[in-house]
């Protein structure tokens, strides 16, 4: 018996301008695409700048793909609860999954890759780096057999 994953509450700060998205999705990559497209549309409708929209979508996609690929190991029936809120000042994404525990790699800056050996060029491992670069705070805790990932991004005014 697995306890159903409930979407925790995100308290909106009030006001019509707060975008709130609460979803539970299956750990499937195409579902991530649909959700990211939805976020893109909703942020644009609310007048967010293009780069804010783009950054927010990359953060959400990378965080979810990480859970799917490394947490649920590409199993498609894992539940992922997402609570997202966005105001003109800040984006907050909460992601909860029941996959194995994982750790967030330390933030490090990207360095220019050596190009003398084509075969050595990285084809992956960019995800966390993008999340760290594009966001301001990343926290992860493990509780009740679930991972709780919280990401905050403060939009430059």
């Amino acid at each position: 018996m697995t306890e159903k994953l409930a979407a925790p509450d995100v308290k909106a700060n009030g006001g019509d301008e707060t975008l709130v998205l609460n979803r539970i999705i299956k750990s499937c990559q195409s579902t991530v695409g649909d959700l990211v497209s939805e976020l893109d549309g909703k942020l644009r409708t609310r007048g967010f700048a293009s780069d804010q929209v783009g950054d927010s979508c990359v953060i959400l996609a990378e965080a979810l793909n990480n859970v799917i690929e490394h947490g649920y190991q590409l199993e498609k029936d894992g539940d992922i609860a997402i609570n997202l809120s966005a105001t003109k000042e800040c984006l907050q994404i909460l992601i909860r999954d029941r996959g194995p525990s994982y750790r967030v790699p330390e933030a490090k800056t990207f360095t220019e890759p050596a190009t003398d050996d084509l075969e050595q060029l990285p084809e992956g491992g960019f995800g966390w780096g993008l999340i760290h670069t594009l966001s301001d705070k990343v926290e992860l805790r493990r509780k009740n057999d679930s991972n709780y990932l919280k990401i905050n991004k403060f939009y430059q005014m």
């Binding site: 990211v36 497209s37 893109d40 783009g54 979508c57 990359v58 996609a61 990378e62 793909n65 084509l118 075969e119 060029l121 990285p122 084809e123 992956g124 491992g125 960019f126 995800g127 993008l130």
Partner: peptide
């Protein structure tokens, strides 16, 4: 209009496949 790190990795893979 949207590319994530998997997409980027795929473009790198294509370049590697084509070789020098």
């Amino acid at each position: 209009t949207f590319m994530d790190s998997s997409g980027l990795g795929a473009v790198v893979a294509v370049m590697k496949h084509m070789g020098r």
